[in-house]
Every structure is written in structure tokens, then in C-alpha cells.
């Protein structure tokens, strides 16, 4: 059991970081886990980043110069879902959107791997503590609830910031 409920997870559960809904925000999403009734409302605020344009060689990718200035949330759920959302906010706030989306992919790959992908601690930070979840398929959705909400909110927000897409969607 200690492998699943690592001390880092229990710490985040008892003292969640960045909890509460804050303004301003660009997008708000509400995600639920229909099998258990856990819910999260999550907001994302993106700001154009201060990435040095001269060293930014990915000029055609608008996500690159967006910084996540805030992720705020209200959630109701188990220790795994609460703690993983808290860890996500630590990893996301103040970082470039594209970096964080890569982290989300790494985290998703790890927890859905049934133990085959160990995860890179340099990328995942405290998120590495959720490696044990992969062995409990019924808990994978718990670990991903906040992360999927973030991905959804970030996609909606990035669309607002993307002038090309803005034009397309009117």
C-alpha cells in the first residue's frame, strides 16, 4: 500500500497547493469521473510569454510563446485525484504551455502503462510518486482527472490565443 500512497501523495492530499478558483482566467472546465462521482472545476490563465523571439525557432507554433500564469481549481475526490491535481499545478504554473503539455503526456504514459513506463523524475517532479497507480487500473482515472481537465482547459485557452484559429472559428 505504501507503494501506491507515497508520502508525497499524502502530503499533497492533506495540504493541496494552489487550491481555489481564481480570476482572471481564460477557460474553465468541469470534469467528472462517472464511475465514482469525483469532480473537478479547473481554470487556466495563459499569458503571452517573454520567450526571446530570437532564440525561439518554433515561430509557427503559437503554443510556444504562451506561459501558464495560473491554474486554479476546486475538486471533490479521493486522495489520488486531489493530490495529482495539486502536483499538476506545481508543475504547470509559470511554465511554457508546450513544456507542460509534454509533461502531461509523460505523466499519462506512465500511469496508463500498467507499470511498463517508469516515468522521468526530471520531467515529472512530484508526479513520479504516482508511478504506483499504474498497477491499479481502477485508479488511473483518479490520477488523470485533474490532468485531463487541464489539457482540455489549456486547449480551449490556446485556441483563444491563437490568432489563426481565432480567425478560423470566427
Amino acid at each position: 500500500m505504501e507503494k501506491l500512497y507515497q508520502e508525497i501523495i499524502l502530503d499533497h492530499y492533506r495540504t493541496p497547493h494552489h487550491q481555489g478558483l481564481r480570476a482572471p482566467f481564460d477557460a474553465e472546465v468541469h470534469h467528472t469521473n462517472p464511475t465514482c462521482g469525483d469532480e473537478v472545476t479547473l481554470r487556466v490563465r495563459l499569458t503571452p510569454g517573454e520567450v526571446d523571439q530570437e532564440v525561439d525557432h518554433h515561430g509557427d507554433d503559437h503554443g510556444d510563446d504562451l506561459l501558464i500564469s495560473d491554474v486554479s481549481y476546486e475538486a471533490m475526490g479521493c486522495s489520488i485525484s486531489q493530490a495529482s491535481t495539486s502536483v499538476l499545478t506545481d508543475l504547470a504554473i509559470g511554465r511554457p504551455l508546450n513544456d507542460v503539455l509534454a509533461t502531461v503526456d509523460e505523466f499519462t504514459a506512465m500511469v496508463t502503462s500498467r507499470g511498463k513506463v517508469s516515468g522521468d523524475e526530471d520531467v515529472l517532479g512530484d508526479g513520479i510518486a504516482f508511478a504506483g497507480v499504474a498497477k491499479y487500473p481502477a485508479r488511473v482515472k483518479c490520477a488523470l482527472l485533474g490532468w485531463m481537465a487541464f489539457k482540455d482547459a489549456a486547449a480551449q485557452t490556446a485556441a483563444q490565443h491563437d490568432p489563426v484559429r481565432k480567425e478560423r472559428t470566427g
Binding site: 500500500m1 500512497y5 465514482c36 469525483d38 475526490g77 479521493c78 486522495s79 489520488i80
Partner: peptide, 11 residues
């Protein structure tokens, strides 16, 4: 949370 109780029970 019920899920966490269930996990300990399952163990």
C-alpha cells in the same frame, strides 16, 4: 474518501 477506503480494504 471512499475510494481510498476501498483501496485499503482491497489490500
Amino acid at each position: 474518501h471512499a475510494h481510498d477506503v476501498g483501496q485499503i480494504l482491497d489490500d
